[in-house]
């Protein structure tokens, strides 16, 4: 479970260009569920995702990971408040607790699909053989095993999306964070993407998606839709 308590993110604080991207957001994201952040561009969805995923720090408020056993050097902890953590701890948490799927996929051209998937596992220091084995299994699970050795630039949009999902899963994270994941997919591929996320939810993963695509927020697989506007939560509905 991810718990947000009065989280705000203000850019250029104290300057004439001050801008509150997220204002006083309190939210609980349940474990093993798909939560969708819905809202127009500029509503603060991506900023909120980056705060939850420990990629940026809030200006005020706290975010606590409960029962997610984040990897910190003091041993496995059940609960951990992440906003106060120094950068050295956040790196590990980003690596082990969260898997990220970006709007532009952010795959690296010139290297193979398999290598792209294995990349986030390299800094963890795991042996190469089990990492490769896991990457191959993920490719098979997502039905793109035949592209393992193909450079990513040869793949179609839907296939790229699957590679991005496999890469997000390589370190077996407790949560998947996806920012506008269907922005470059047609309706059929978007439905397929949601089905894959449904499978991950079934496997106990917590999924958090920011999207203004009706295929995503109207999907029956989404357990909760949180509406945002102007950096604030304006409504939430559970399925």
């Amino acid at each position: 479970m991810i718990e947000l308590s009065r989280v705000s993110k203000i850019f250029n604080s104290g300057k004439p260009s001050q801008y509150a991207a997220v204002s006083d957001v309190s939210l609980t994201i349940e474990q093993g569920c798909i939560t969708v952040l819905k809202g127009p561009s500029g509503s603060g969805k991506t900023t909120l995702l980056s705060l939850i995923g420990c990629m940026s720090r809030p200006s005020s408020g706290r975010i606590t990971l409960r029962r997610m056993e984040p990897d910190v050097p003091a041993g496995q902890l059940v609960d951990l408040e992440v906003t106060s953590l120094p950068e050295r701890f956040l790196t590990n948490i980003r690596r082990s607790t969260f898997g990220f799927i970006f709007q532009q996929f952010n795959l690296i051209k010139g290297i193979s699909t398999l290598e792209n998937i294995m990349l986030p596992a390299y800094p963890t220091g795991q042996n190469l053989a089990p990492v490769k084995q896991r990457a191959v299994e993920l490719l098979e699970l997502l039905s793109i095993g035949r592209h393992a050795n193909a450079p990513v630039e040869w793949l179609s949009g839907g296939e790229l999306q699957r590679v991005a999902i496999a890469r997000a899963l390589i370190n077996d994270p407790a949560a998947i964070i996806a920012d506008e994941p269907t922005a470059h997919l047609d309706s059929r591929l978007s439905v397929e993407f949601m089905e894959i996320l449904g499978t991950l939810k079934g496997a106990g993963k917590t999924v958090l998606i920011a999207s203004h695509d009706p295929v995503v927020f109207e999907s029956l697989l989404a357990d909760r839709v949180v509406e945002m506007r102007d950096g604030q939560i304006t409504g939430a509905s559970a399925r």
């Binding site: 009065r6 705000s8 200006s59 005020s60 408020g61 906003t83 106060s84």
Partner: peptide, 17 residues
């Protein structure tokens, strides 16, 4: 006050490092 999520507390956390 580590239990507080105030703007001052978060600024102190960032600056102390």
């Amino acid at each position: 006050d580590l239990s507080s999520g105030s703007e001052l507390q978060l600024a102190l956390e960032r600056r102390t490092y």
